[in-house]
């Protein structure tokens, strides 16, 4: 990689308005619209990551940038995702926005980018610091939700709605998935804090899948008719639970805030979704890229907001319509802190 042909270097220099030898200083004059951004997200078969993609693309467009957003070839293709990032790293982007499939899989690819003195912004799921350091990589900024906190808030809220001494069914995503584990563990903690006598059934893994969640919920209800409410680690699974045979009017909580879930909250089929804002993550990722390219000081870590969307605020959430529709609530119904936006030089 050191022996790049001179032609490539010439073109690279021509492509950039300024040399990228010392990005901190030289790139300072860069206008927002000249920042070249590439992103590698997780598999796009999940509305959540489509929401992020929309956030990146639409925010970039607002600044006059056309971002190249790529996804891992499959939801679990950790090596394939690293290959994608490698492919993009060969080109002269100023900034790379990444969401690793696992906490380690992109570390080496990020290491390569760091060696080329380019910026990496990590959103949604964090890259593990130890493996990143071992690979010589550096992440300039992280913006993501705290899944544990989101789960915890859901747990407290559910107990407040169903009362104490009840049994709650838990449905998790893929076995071994960190996000799922954080949401479930957080939920349990929140529920137990509000009611130490609460009992749990599960978690059963339904692989983030609607149909599998429906089957699991049916089986769990059959085995434990005492289940009073369900918590699912994502909305698609909550949607599945809502179709279970004996679900009646039992409370169902999901996480994410996807379009279908909001419709179901509106119609009362599910009780609440702990809504996260992937669009906001994408937005912050792009803004962080611009700040870095302008030579500004980028906030190291930002926790993106979550809101519990239920019958009380569903209409407001539905009002934030997206142009493409997967995540109608692109932006939270209330205020949230965006430390990046104000740092961008016009």
């Amino acid at each position: 990689m050191k022996r790049k042909s001179s032609a490539v270097i010439l073109l690279a220099v021509a492509a950039l308005t300024v040399s990228s030898v010392l990005p901190g200083q030289a790139a300072a004059k860069k206008k927002a619209k000249d920042v070249k951004i590439a992103a590698v997200v997780k598999g796009l078969d999940n509305p959540f990551f489509i929401g992020i993609k929309e956030g990146i693309e639409e925010t970039a467009l607002k600044y006059g940038i056309r971002a190249n957003v790529q996804a891992a070839p499959g939801l679990n293709d950790d090596v394939g995702q690293a290959n994608k990032l490698d492919s993009l790293a060969g080109q002269n982007y100023d900034c790379y926005i990444v969401i690793p499939i696992s906490s380690n899989n992109l570390s080496q690819a990020v290491g390569k980018i760091t060696k080329k003195k380019k910026t990496v912004i990590n959103i949604d799921s964090p890259i593990d610091a130890t493996s990143l350091a071992a690979a010589g990589g550096k992440v300039t900024s992280f913006a993501g939700t705290d899944n544990f906190a989101a789960g915890e808030a859901g747990g407290k809220d559910m107990i407040a709605k169903i009362g104490t001494g009840k049994t709650i069914g838990l449905i998790a995503g893929l076995a071994g998935n960190v996000t799922s584990a954080a949401r479930i563990d957080g939920f349990k903690k929140g529920a137990l804090a509000a009611d130490p006598t609460v009992k749990f059934v599960g978690p059963e893994n339904a692989d983030w899948d609607t149909t599998k969640a429906l089957d699991k919920a049916n089986a769990m209800l059959l085995a434990n008719p005492s289940i009073a409410a369900f918590f699912a680690a994502n909305d698609q699974m909550a949607q599945g639970i809502s179709k279970a045979t004996n679900i009646g009017t039992k409370k169902i909580y999901g996480v994410d805030g996807i379009a279908d879930a909001l419709t179901l909250v509106k119609s009362g089929k599910i009780s609440a979704t702990i809504s996260q804002y992937p669009y906001v993550m994408g937005q912050m990722g792009v803004q962080a890229c611009i700040i870095a390219a302008q030579g500004g000081k980028v906030p190291e870590k930002t926790i993106t907001p979550y809101y519990i969307i239920d019958s009380s605020n569903i209409d407001k959430a539905l009002a934030n319509n997206s142009s493409r529709g997967y995540f109608p609530n692109q932006l939270p119904p209330g205020t949230y802190d965006n430390p990046y936006e104000k740092l961008i030089k016009k």
């Binding site: 499959g74 293709d77 950790d78 906490s103 380690n104 899989n105 080496q108 493996s131 893929l174």
Partner: peptide
């Protein structure tokens, strides 16, 4: 080699392979 590549032993199968 996959471990060398991604620096971790991942428990979730990668069907793309």
């Amino acid at each position: 080699l996959a471990i060398a590549r991604i620096g971790a032993a991942e428990p979730a199968a990668n069907t793309a392979i």
